[in-house]
Design a protein around this nucleic acid. Structure first.
Lengths: 226, 226, 226, 226
DNA sequence: TATGAATGAGAGTTCATTCAT
DNA sequence: GATGAATGAACTCTCATTCAT
């Protein structure tokens, strides 16, 4: 991150690399989950060692021993979250054979307006914000979006091939548009925008509807125009 | 002991109310512009009084005299930016009579991938991030989005009436979808995503294309489907 | 914004509880002595962290680590002084068996116009002043005075029983009167009043004389009136 | 005072000398009364220009124009209080011809445990505290105590002459003892000591009783011993 | 004469980090 | 490997004061 580069050298212990170590491995994962919660709660910049320590029950100096600097801890936590999201997306695609169904699943998982959408999306906003100014995280973000759009493109291509989606579709462009729709709807969700049509799943429905139209599908499964 | 009532009443000088006053008014506006720059540059949380002081040439204590606390300064800066954006949007609509042209203008202004898109969008990401955890800013954000979607809805309605857009269109839902597309494309722009198709204006083109399809228009102006 | 939760929980390190710990315990006691000196010298309100740091050789941040806030440091320092005074009083009583002698000792210790009376009394004035507006210190002051008067009352009772003091004496009232005499003479001592009859021990003599008369004793040990 | 000698030269305008000026004279007196209240309330060290400004309705810069520095304002306020006290004492003596009655009046006025003893005594503690470290105020304090004891001595002498008080009495010493009793009882009063026997006027009674005994008088007016 | 605007100095506090077990 | 103790750096904020009407 950027702020609070309070003097001192960034003594990053080799532990960070030793991902697979049995002992600290468990601790690490638990800590990362706790850290993710704190980030969603207080924001990345507001996340102090003390907070993660309280949330995880691990002493501050141990956290530093595990992760190095505060910055490294935050990065690790974000990576953790990204990996979870990635896994969810992949299994969403695997849940069906039909391209449209797959797309619907993807959108549902992506919009995530089921249980507590704000919390999820707050974390994403934090992630963007952090990635803006941290090279490592920006790199991570690029990869995450690359994979994410790759997944969408696969589905789009399958849909074109199978004739479910309109033929003139450019999968790359479509993936950008679809991902933009999902991320874009996340912002009012994160902010708890009272202007959003009420009702759980409304955001998902709006996005699904738009995606159907972009892909040349009717939401009800009727043959698309074009 | 007693002294040092750090808490207590928020000593916000009356300046805040006196927006139009000659002296401090000028100073304030200039400072806010400078602060906006610093926020885009270093992030809101990374914006120290010292930074704004350096950027504006105004002493730190004077900044505090003008705005009260650092928090208040940030809020004022964000409000300033929002007002600018709002003005740009409104004049974008006024630039034409034709609904589709108006929509194209709106998208162009909104996506803003002309000169330095990253800088603009970084500021927006900062704004969202800040609004997540500040009540005042969240309120402001809701209003900004309310007005922003209101503008889009007007255009959509005009387009439906004039027959340029497809008839079954729900203006409210459409406005959510269109705004989401624009915000959503802003994220790769902010992050400098190398996966974005190269070329200035590409993002705008992708969004315009998607909007055309959502509205039932062909980008080239051919009669829309539906 | 969110960060900088200056308020929140009072991060007072557990050190406070662990009085007997070897390491910090020593440091703490030394610091408290130094702080007491600074308070007498510059006044409690004029006592900055920097001053105590200079006087004790302990860095400012360490002082905060030990005591928490400046307020807590001052309170701890006052408590330290009170404990010392209390010990001196108790041992003054133990120095003799005869009630009148005990009383004389108490007055001598209390008036303390031997070496540098001003310094001692300045600290007490500071203590009163601080206790006026701090609940914790006021509580402490009440306890100190309670014990202090308790001691006097014991001696008075013993004197009544032994026949040395006049019989109609109310020990409670007498203790208030005697303590008032001592505290009251402390004020010109603290202020270096040039109106005080010259000579070391004069203040003690004046108070002893008054106490003798209140108790129905002659200073020289002649049988008292009443 | 001592603290907060924040740089800058002590530019004291000549106004301070111009006590009698018609216009500002009124303002000055009102301000001093207000300042006295603030001092009793928040303590001298806690008394900021802003506080006095709020309490008096006079702008900060005007206060500075009137009194010069914050220190000067405090000194003027204390002088104001001392003058009031002095007047009260003098008129207390004038209220009767009989020395013992005069003494009783003096004690009553001095102990002042009628209406809100704590407030009055808090101001005195503040005065002592301030005088400890300010040469001008210490000088003032010496004068105040000189006059105060002078008054007591006069009464004592009259009492000796008239045969009301015991003959061996040393008026100077007696005045020190009596003043000490009064000031000394002021401390538990200022601190709201719960150990003080309850009931309005109790403190006065205890002091009067002690004074009677010191002077060789019985509280009931019977001929004193010795 | 009186007052609002502006500013410099200094203080407390938070927090990441280093060091020694 | 893990952790408590100690400390330096930086930042926000308060407040008296100066300056210009």
């Amino acid at each position: 991150m950027t702020e609070n580069d309070t003097g001192g050298t960034a003594r990053r212990p080799p532990i960070v690399a030793r991902r697979g170590s049995r002992r600290s491995g468990r601790g690490r994962a638990a800590v990362l989950a706790a850290a993710g919660g704190v980030i969603g709660d207080r924001g990345a910049d507001g996340t102090r060692f003390t907070d993660v320590s309280r949330a995880s029950g691990v002493p501050v100096s141990t956290l530093q021993y595990y992760f190095g600097s505060r910055e490294d801890l935050l990065i690790a936590a974000f990576r953790h979250e990204c990996a979870r999201e990635q896994a969810a997306m992949t299994s969403a695609v695997r849940a069906s054979e039909d391209p449209w169904d797959q797309m619907v699943h993807l959108v549902r998982v992506g919009v995530a307006d089921g249980d507590r959408p704000a919390l999820t999306w707050r974390t994403w906003v934090e992630f963007w914000r952090a990635a803006l100014r941290d090279d490592e995280l920006r790199e991570e973000a690029h990869e995450v979006y690359h994979r994410w759009r790759g997944l969408v493109q696969e589905v789009v291509r399958a849909g074109i091939t199978s004739g479910r989606f309109r033929s003139g579709l450019n999968p790359d462009i479509a993936s950008h548009q679809i991902v933009a729709l999902i991320d874009g709807i996340g912002i009012p969700l994160a902010l708890g925008d009272p202007g959003l049509p009420a009702g759980q799943g409304t955001a998902t429905k709006m996005v699904t509807d738009a995606v159907a139209r972009l892909l040349g599908m009717r939401p009800r499964g009727e043959p698309g125009a074009d």
